[in-house]
Structure formats: C-alpha cells, structure tokens
C-alpha cells in the first residue's frame, strides 16, 4: 500500500471516509471507476485487493446490534492501536484534543507523551502513553466489584457508578495510566452535553451509562482512556488519532487486520512485521492492544519536541 501513488491515496481517503472507516467490510480502497459500473477495490483479510461493484457494497448502518451490551461491546470487533514512535515529535495535539473532548478537569491527562531514553547510549524519543487496553488486564483482575471490565471488542472500560474508589486497579496497572478524581470534577459543560448526545444508551434512572468513561467523571472514582467509543459510534477515529498532525496514531480492527490514521491505511500484521512493532512490557504478560513501532529512521527531530514540553503539566488550565 505504501507504494501507491499519492493520487490514489488521496482518492481513497475521500471515498474511504465516506464509507466509514470502521465498516464490517474493512479497509477500503477505491480505484478509478471502470467502464459504466463503478468498481471498488477492497482488501480482504489476507491483504489481497479484490474488485467489487460499488452497488454490492453494503454499509453497515449501526455498529451496535439489537442485543448490544455495554459489558460485551461492539459485536465482531477487536480494536487495536499502533503508535509510530518514528513520527512523534511531541506536538501535543493528541493530548490537547483528548483533554478537551473528555472534559478532563484534573491535573493528570489520560494520554501523556513521555520523554524516553532507554539507556545513555541510545537516542531519546517521545512516547505517547495511554491505556493499553490489555487482553489480560491486571486492573480488571484486581477490581473487587467488577467496576472496571474487559469487553470482547478489546476495550477496558469503567463503570463509574459502581467503582468504590479503592484504587487497587491503579496500583495494579504497570503503565500508570489510570487517574483518580480526587475532588469533584469541574465538568459543567459535559453534564448537559452527555444527556443530549447519548440519549439512547442512557440509563434513565441515573442518567449515566458506563459506555463512555469520564462522561461524566465522578468524584472518588477512577478514570482513564476508553478508546473513544463515542467516536467509534459515529464511525470516526478517536480524538488523539485525528488530532495528530504527524500521523503517529493508527486505529483499527484486529479482525479486519487494518489500521488507519485517517490519511494512510495499513494491513496491521504486515505493518507490525515490516516495522518490527512491539508492545510495552511484553514480559508482564498483560497482552496490550496498543502496539508501538520503534523510533527508527525518524521523520522528526527529537529536539523540536522540547518546544511544547512541560515536565509538570499535561492538562492546560485556562483559569
């Protein structure tokens, strides 16, 4: 796919976005229209391109079927993320967008960019860190009340109406991605927004649904990155993915074997093979859903990242 010329990639983007990036059909590529019937090129799960008439392509209207259950998640999906460290220069747009769209009012963002250097002799690099949505999540294992749960679609989520605030999950998480609402969150905006946006999922007694973490955040409970199901609902990419100016983040479906950052789409398995993808702390056996591509052949200058670097702040305060 990388060898495609610029033109067809643009075209793919336009049409692809229209079709929805996360349809059950999978990563889509549109070639030039052939003769009278418009044909579409689709990628099958083995990475082969096949031609199908546009009229035969059916768009799946809703990702959630009738017996959708928040603790099971989207049917037939397994979300993954790939983070290309070679592209990250700490532009911080992901962090900003995440904070803004999740109305993060505490001091600790759900997504942070770390300044990393594995040893003195090796080069430093910027590393975005967010919930790894582990397949063997240590946080879920230790939760005494099943407030944090692992879904079949890969997402690790939190029921803020059940959480008792013991913080054992935070102690158990080796990636330090969980945050706690130490005081009453100041999320005035969200409380009116959420009622309108998520009416269909809402529990009408409590006005709350565990579908969307931090929506609203609740004093005395734990929050963290939830892979943006409110964006997935609309067949859009998570905020960090779409906000990144350098195309660092790729989001997709393991079953479709496809990930995209909005501009480019790759076959996941091939991408991980070609770029030697890895997961954080693989030795712990947590089996994260987030893959990293090593920071080699960097497209960005590490030093440039210091422009936005703040050691003690990941959430901007506009007070």
């Amino acid at each position: 796919m990388e060898s495609n010329d610029k033109n067809s990639r643009r075209k793919f983007l336009n049409n692809g976005l229209k079709l929805g990036l996360l349809t059950a059909i999978g990563g889509v590529a549109i070639a030039k229209s052939l003769e009278e019937e418009e044909m579409v090129e689709l990628m099958d799960t083995n990475g082969n391109l096949i031609k199908v008439p546009v009229t035969k392509v059916e768009e799946n209207s809703s990702l959630k079927d009738d017996d959708y259950n928040v603790r099971e998640g989207y049917p037939n999906k397994k979300f993954v993320m790939v983070i290309d460290l070679a592209r990250c220069k700490n532009a911080k747009q992901c962090v900003k967008s995440c904070n803004k769209n999740h109305f993060i009012s505490g001091d600790n963002a759900w997504l942070k960019i770390y300044k990393m250097q594995d040893s003195e002799e090796t080069a430093p690099y910027w590393m975005p860190n967010l919930c790894q949505h582990c397949d063997k999540p240590p946080c879920v294992k230790v939760c005494p009340v099943d407030a944090t749960f692992k879904r079949r679609d890969g997402i690790v989520s939190i029921d803020a109406n059940r959480c008792i605030g013991c913080r054992f999950c935070m102690a158990a998480c080796p990636y330090s991605v969980r945050v706690f609402n130490w005081s009453e969150p100041e999320q005035d905006e969200i409380k009116s927004n959420m009622v309108m946006e998520h009416e269909d999922q809402m529990n009408h007694n409590t006005g709350y649904t565990p579908d969307y973490t931090g929506n609203p955040s609740t004093k005395g409970t734990v929050d963290k990155c939830d892979f943006c199901p409110h964006m997935i609902d609309q067949k859009l990419l998570p905020h960090c993915v779409s906000a990144c100016p350098n195309g660092v983040y790729f989001f997709g479906d393991l079953y479709e074997d496809t990930v995209t950052n909005g501009d480019e789409t790759f076959q996941l398995s091939k991408l991980l093979e070609d770029k030697a993808g890895y997961r954080l702390m693989e030795d712990l056996g947590t089996m994260p859903s987030v893959y990293y591509l090593p920071p080699k052949n960097r497209q960005q200058n590490f030093e440039e990242g210091f422009k936005y670097y703040t050691e003690f702040q990941s959430v901007e305060k506009n007070k």
Binding site: P144, V145, R162, I164, G165, R167, F168, N181
Partner: peptide, 20 residues
C-alpha cells in the same frame, strides 16, 4: 475508599478473583 457510600457493592458485585 473514594466512595464509602458504595461499600455494599462488595456484597452485590464482589468478585472472588480480587484479593480485596
């Protein structure tokens, strides 16, 4: 506990795999 008001959840939703 952050939410002592929900301590009954330990009985309602207690999960045996948690050391707590």
């Amino acid at each position: 506990m952050g939410r002592p008001d929900r301590i009954y959840n330990l009985l309602l939703h207690g999960r045996l795999q948690s050391p707590i």
